[in-house]
Design a protein around this nucleic acid. Structure first.
Length: 932
RNA sequence: GCCGGGGUGGUGGAACUGGUAGACACGCAGGACUUAAAAUCCUGUGAGCCGAAACGCUCGUACGGGUUCGAUUCCCGUCCCCGGUACCA
């Protein structure tokens, strides 16, 4: 083989691995286990682009490295195959989402296989497979069958709650539950009917029904995701969208808020990601205070505040426009303005409401409430910066201490009261200080922050008008989608005579509840979700729930399914879970920080509580890979010309032009392939003109998100076909640090391609004759090799794959300069390369005379320090911070001796010009600085 | 807006714990080989300055300050870009 042929080599080894089931893994108690997990992809219709495999390549390198280090590595792949895009496609084309999904998965698998990943494909899972979602439904049922006992700080079977009710009624119950639970005694409990007991229990379960606000599009009759809403109208059709309350299944994730925070201290995830989760959960310590409405002492407005100490500074009360008391509090004179304001608010999404802080808006209800401490009358307003879903949906306005309140008060001419003697310039802006002593503050006058807060909370609790409370920004998760392409909720509704229907779980033996066939994927005429179209969609005559589960359901437990992917009796066998335990390394994007990565931790903690899994946290280490952006190319079209004319990038400033995206696949090194351009575009006329520079058409470029509409999508298949899987793998790693986002630029791949060919030439001469020798390596060769072993091992452990590719390049350059083709060196080089370049490493391993396919069974080489010892170091010598000369000293020379030697060095003395050094800094093995 | 991340040559990036900024690679320029091309190899390549050359000098890690003998690295402020913002996955 004179030139290395990547097509043949890739094919040969991919086939070999498949036939020999090289990467299939079984429970093996003789080896330590290691579980490397990739976030599984949603199989979109566009297929993989070069950005997707970045994390997969990194995790594959790590997996292969760990195997060479003697671990039994579980490295699986699957598909998160329920989701909105397949459904939208189904709505447009009538094609069943299962069919498009199946086709997309096929494409994904073939694309992934071409890159040579060491996945155990026998364990592949798909969330939309009934055999899989049977267990998603089962976990939903387990959640429904559980309540959260705050005393035990864990989820327990609902039966234990029934027992507690039977023993003591609601006395002493400390549960995560709905706000509106009622109190009762043992006797009352016993007197309740079974249905009544059941109805009560629904308010305690970890999945429950509740009202939640959704984006509703009346014209489409659909609930839309935020993604489908653009500027207040639906993306499809451009119809108005309003915020509407709707009965929804919810998950009581807030019960786990504290454990989700404290658990972060036990896992090796990046600080920034942990910080995002902490902030998302948003634990804040404060107080709940009830304000009675003027002349209606029985009507209480509850507010949560983290600054109860500022209570004497309250000059207004603001409710969310959706707050349940708004209608009742609005006086007839104010009704019109309040109604208008509410209508306006409904048009705005939560994000708009939060983002827009410059514009102050609000409306006065006409009512007042009474400050429970000062007894003063406080006007009640509504404003959209208060969100119904956070806290109690009401805030007390303290303009002197909070900038947003200050803006509101200033805008509406409400009083601003100073409450701390240390507050400064409160006529110009709010001052949130906690320093100083309170003034104008009744019972806390003269106190400092800590005592004042304690005193106020004591009084609140004593009088029963409030209490100290921990509040979370985290809200319970909505667990229902009015969509077709998701897991059916295994619940049916049944009513006692004359009663509201109640939800009941189907029997375990009836799982999975399989998604029914329907004629269209749209809501029904009367606005029910698509499942309303399914015929016979009932359980023994009782209607099923019509919503399906959200996208995150199936991805919240999938790592367990890989452990035992085909088990029909459990989500995974006890034996499998005992062996594989949890994920040692999890790789995926940061965009999942507050979604998937939080929900999955929640489900895992729940499964732990109920004894189904062994650990509180499922992913010990998490690495977030960055995004790969696209590099878009542009052509410049003349705005005014008789014929359609494009002008080259360098000349465009001389004309009036429009910038247009052009497919990056017909551009090479920024030079446009004009013939292909003409052939592939039908919007440029028959005979477009080109104004060239240097005889070619140069395109402009910009870095943007990779997407079809920007014509900058690069398909890994094309790259693999042209350069081979190994070059592609190396280049993806070489592109930059794993965790950063960086642009794809196909040009640079030549460098890694050259590297591979250079590597090949260590084995063969131009005629394809092997030049490998059995000679003993010398010190320089061993040094080059062991330097690489050392650096690459460190880099793999630290996930610095980009610098390890550089190290390989340097090593091969050195060996090439040394004309080293010695077997002893090449063998080890090929092994350390094999996680990065598995195909060519296998090939070269065989060429070196080893049994075919045995490189995966080798031990990872260990570097030997003796080859790396430096006998001396070259010290740059700085005079006043500028390098003026350098001196070489033995490696083991003491700091004192170096100092002496420096100060007696001729060159140094010349630079000192007779000045006595003030200070001498010697940094061992680095630098010497003489300050004069 | 809020939360998190980032900003270094023409380009992607490197730089250990604060110690010679620009490793490695792309691109570009010049050269060798070749009838030619490809491939390969060699040389140069942050900006500016001095000079025949060697040597050398000044500036330079988004911007403005600060700490330090010394700052891409630490601190304060500003600008810009990316991710998330609860129904995209």
């Amino acid at each position: 083989m004179s030139e290395f042929n990547h097509r043949e080599i890739d094919k040969k080894w991919q086939q070999f691995w498949e036939e020999n089931k090289t990467y299939q893994v079984e429970i093996d108690h003789s080896k330590p286990k290691f579980y490397v997990l990739d976030m599984f992809p949603y199989p979109s219709g566009a297929g993989l682009h070069v950005g997707h495999p970045l994390g997969y390549i990194a995790s594959d390198i790590y997996s292969r490295y760990k195997r060479l280090k003697g671990y039994n590595v579980l490295h699986p792949m699957g598909f998160d195959s329920f989701g909105l895009p397949a459904e939208q496609y189904a709505i447009q084309t009538g094609q069943h989402p299962a069919i498009t999904t199946e086709a997309n998965i096929k494409t994904y698998i073939s694309q992934l296989k071409k890159i040579g990943f060491s996945y155990d494909w026998s364990r592949e899972v798909r969330t939309s497979d009934p055999k899989y979602y049977k267990w998603t439904q089962w976990i939903f049922m387990e959640l429904f069958r559980s309540w959260y006992n705050k005393d035990a700080d864990k989820a327990e079977p609902i039966e234990t709650l029934y027992e507690k009710f039977a023993q003591n009624g609601t006395k002493g119950i400390n549960a995560a539950c709905d706000e509106d639970v009622i109190s009762f005694s043992t006797d009352e409990w016993k007197a309740f009917s079974e249905t009544e007991k059941y109805r009560i229990s629904l308010k305690y379960r970890l999945t429950y029904l509740s009202e939640a606000i959704v984006n509703f599009c009346p014209a489409l009759g659909m609930v839309l995701s935020n993604d489908e809403v653009k500027d207040g109208v639906s993306e499809r059709g451009g119809y108005p969208v309003i915020q509407k309350k709707m009965q929804q299944w919810m998950m009581r994730i807030t019960a786990y808020a504290d454990r989700l925070i404290t658990g972060l201290d036990t896992i090796d995830w990046s600080d920034s990601l942990k910080e995002q989760q902490r902030n998302w959960i948003g634990r804040s310590v404060g107080a709940m205070v009830k304000f009675a409405v003027e002349n209606k002492p029985e009507t209480l407005i509850e507010v949560f505040t983290t600054r109860v100490d500022t209570i004497y500074g309250v000059s207004f009360m603001v409710l969310a426009p959706e707050h349940e008391l708004v209608a009742q509090l609005t006086t007839p004179e104010q009704k019109e303005s309040i109604d208008n304001y509410i209508t306006e608010t409904q048009k705005r999404s939560e994000l708009d409401r939060m983002s827009d802080v410059k514009k102050v808006s609000g409306a006065f209800t006409g009512s007042y409430c009474i400050n429970p401490f000062s007894g003063e009358k406080v006007p009640i307003w509504i404003a959209d910066y208060v969100l119904a879903g956070y806290g109690t949906g009401a805030v007390m306005g303290v303009p002197s201490g909070d900038q947003r309140d200050w803006n509101f008060a200033t805008h509406f001419s409400l009083p601003i009261v100073q409450i701390l003697d240390s507050q400064q310039d409160i006529d110009k802006q709010a001052d949130a200080t906690k320093e100083g002593k309170y003034i104008n503050s009744g019972i806390i006058n003269g106190l400092a922050y800590k005592e004042a807060t304690q005193k106020l909370i004591d009084v609140l609790e004593e009088k029963g008008i409030g209490k100290g409370k921990v509040n979370y920004r985290l809200r319970d998760a909505v667990f229902a989608r009015q969509r077709y392409w998701g897991e059916p909720v295994p619940v049916y509704f049944k009513a006692e005579a004359g009663e509201e229907p109640l939800p009941y779980l189907i029997d375990d033996k009836d799982l999975p509840l399989v998604l029914p066939e329907i004629d269209k994927y749209l809501p029904t005429a009367d606005g029910e979700p698509p499942l309303g179209r399914a015929e016979g969609w009932n359980y023994n005559g009782n209607p099923y729930e019509l919503s399906t589960m959200p996208g995150w359901a199936g991805s919240s437990w999938y790592w367990y399914r890989y452990m035992d992917a085909h088990n029909e009796n459990a989500f995974a066998s006890k034996e499998a879970i005992d062996y594989w335990q949890n994920v040692d390394l999890y790789l995926g994007g940061t965009e999942h920080a507050t979604g998937h990565l939080l929900y999955s931790r929640f489900w895992n903690k729940f499964l732990k509580d109920r004894g189904h899994v062994p650990h509180e946290e499922y992913a010990l280490k998490l690495i977030n890979q960055g995004m790969i952006q696209g590099r878009s190319s542009f052509v410049y079209r003349l705005k005014e010309a008789d014929k359609i004319t494009f002008v080259s990038h360098g000349l465009k400033d001389q004309y009036d032009v429009t910038k247009l995206h052009v497919d990056v696949n017909i551009v090479e090194n920024d030079i446009l392939d004009i013939e292909k351009f003409k052939a592939t575009r039908n919007d440029i006329g028959d005979d477009p003109q080109f104004i060239l520079e240097d005889g070619v058409y140069r395109c402009g470029s910009e870095v943007e998100k990779m997407s079809k509409s920007k014509f900058n999508v690069v398909n890994p298949d094309d790259i693999v076909e042209r350069y081979g899987a190994d070059t592609f793998r190396l280049y993806e790693m070489f592109l930059g640090p794993l965790t950063e986002s960086k642009p794809w630029d196909t040009r640079g791949i030549e460098g890694t391609y050259r590297f591979i060919r250079k590597l090949w030439r260590l084995f063969f001469d131009q005629n394809g004759k092997s030049i490998v020798t059995e000679a003993e390596p010398d010190k320089a060769e061993l040094k080059a090799l062991h330097k690489a072993i050392k650096k690459v091992s460190e880099d793999v452990e630290n996930f610095s794959f980009n610098t390890s590719v550089s190290t390989f390049m340097i090593c091969v350059n050195e060996l090439s300069d040394l004309k080293c083709s010695k077997k002893a060196i090449l063998e080890q080089l090929v092994i350390i390369l094999s996680p990065y370049t598995p195909h060519i490493s296998e090939e070269l391993w065989e060429i070196l005379g080893h049994e075919k396919g045995t490189i995966t069974k080798q031990a990872y080489p260990v570097f030997e320090a003796k080859y790396l010892v430096e006998d001396s170091f070259e010290y740059p010598i700085q005079i006043n911070g500028k390098v003026r000369t350098s001196i070489s000293f033995p490696a083991n020379m003491s700091k004192e001796d170096i100092e002496k030697a420096v100060l007696s060095n001729e060159n140094v003395l010349k630079w000192l010009e007779g000045n006595a050094p003030k200070k001498l800094i010697v940094v061992p093995k680095r630098i010497v600085n003489v300050v004069i």
